[in-house]
Simulated assay, not measured.
Amino acid sequence: MAYKASGAGYADVARHFRTLIQDGELTPGDALPSVQEIRQQFDVSAKTVSRALSVLKTEGLVTGRGSLGTVVTAQPNVAATGAARLKRLERTGKEYAAGESSTDHVAMVRSCADPDIAEQLGIELHDEIVIRRRVFRQNGQPTVVALSCIHIRARSAVPEVTQQGQLKPFWQKTYTERTGLTVTRGPERRSARLASSDELAALEVEAPATAAVPVLVLRTTFHDENGPIEVWEDVHAPGLWQTSDAGV
């Protein structure tokens, strides 16, 4: 946790500890340094430290714990966005944060029936794509149904994308190593819609068959020099807070 930033503001201090928490360097129950230690570490005033800790408490990342000072919370209702997971992987090499896991990894080749995804991939509607699906969990509870819609051209370089089960390493890394083409990430697009029955089942949400359950949906498009290569779609369980890589 060595860091020294003369003249840092409260947002810089909050960002530093937020990143440590999201990357799993600080886990639930761990204590943050004392106010005096943070003051010395960042060369800031006690007021600046207080504001930074207040921000982290508002975000549900830390809480006051008497003589223990400020400690990291369990965050059962927080789920990372796809962009945040990728940034964490790039920073630390860690695929999962503390308490996070993924299950139900499925791969298939299907025609693309979603006009928006077809447009983002630069293909015709009903062209074939590779679809990879998994469910992210926090402490065993499902938080995100994650869908990867991969351009069929990627299969020639990485045939493993159609392999069932979890892929290691991340397929884009293998693609870059084999083709020399760098894959870049576009911004996350956020929208809301009603969840399908399959999504509710994967998220273990019990609702009447006629119920309308809104969910947050995040989409991210990836490109190489030849055009779009993948679209991520994350469907978040109702009632969750999302953490992104914004400002990290």
Score class of each variant (00 low, 15 high):
158 V>K: 06
165 G>Q: 06
158 V>N: 02
171 W>V: 00
159 P>Y: 13
137 R>E: 12
140 G>S: 14
163 Q>V: 07
157 A>V: 14
152 I>T: 12
132 R>G: 04
126 H>D: 05
148 S>A: 10
133 R>Q: 11
138 Q>C: 07
129 I>R: 08
145 V>G: 05
160 E>V: 09
143 T>D: 09
135 V>E: 05
140 G>Q: 13
178 R>Q: 15
172 Q>T: 13
147 L>S: 13
166 Q>M: 13
175 Y>K: 04
170 F>K: 00
120 Q>T: 06
169 P>T: 02
134 R>I: 03
122 G>V: 02
161 V>R: 03
158 V>D: 02
118 A>K: 13
126 H>S: 11
171 W>Q: 00
128 E>C: 06
160 E>Q: 15
165 G>N: 07
158 V>G: 00
152 I>G: 08
165 G>T: 13
157 A>M: 09
129 I>V: 15
123 I>Q: 08
141 Q>C: 06
123 I>L: 12
159 P>T: 12
176 T>I: 05
154 A>Q: 04
152 I>N: 13
132 R>N: 09
118 A>L: 11
122 G>A: 07
175 Y>P: 04
129 I>M: 13
173 K>C: 00
142 P>R: 01
169 P>E: 03
129 I>P: 09
148 S>L: 02
138 Q>F: 10
173 K>Y: 00
118 A>T: 11
151 H>M: 08
156 S>V: 14
152 I>K: 15
161 V>S: 01
136 F>H: 11
123 I>A: 04
152 I>Y: 13
147 L>I: 03
139 N>F: 15
118 A>Y: 07
167 L>V: 07
125 L>G: 12
128 E>N: 12
127 D>Y: 04
165 G>L: 08
162 T>A: 12
167 L>F: 00
163 Q>P: 14
132 R>I: 05
153 R>T: 14
143 T>L: 08
152 I>W: 10
120 Q>M: 08
162 T>H: 06
180 G>R: 09
139 N>C: 12
147 L>V: 04
163 Q>I: 08
167 L>G: 06
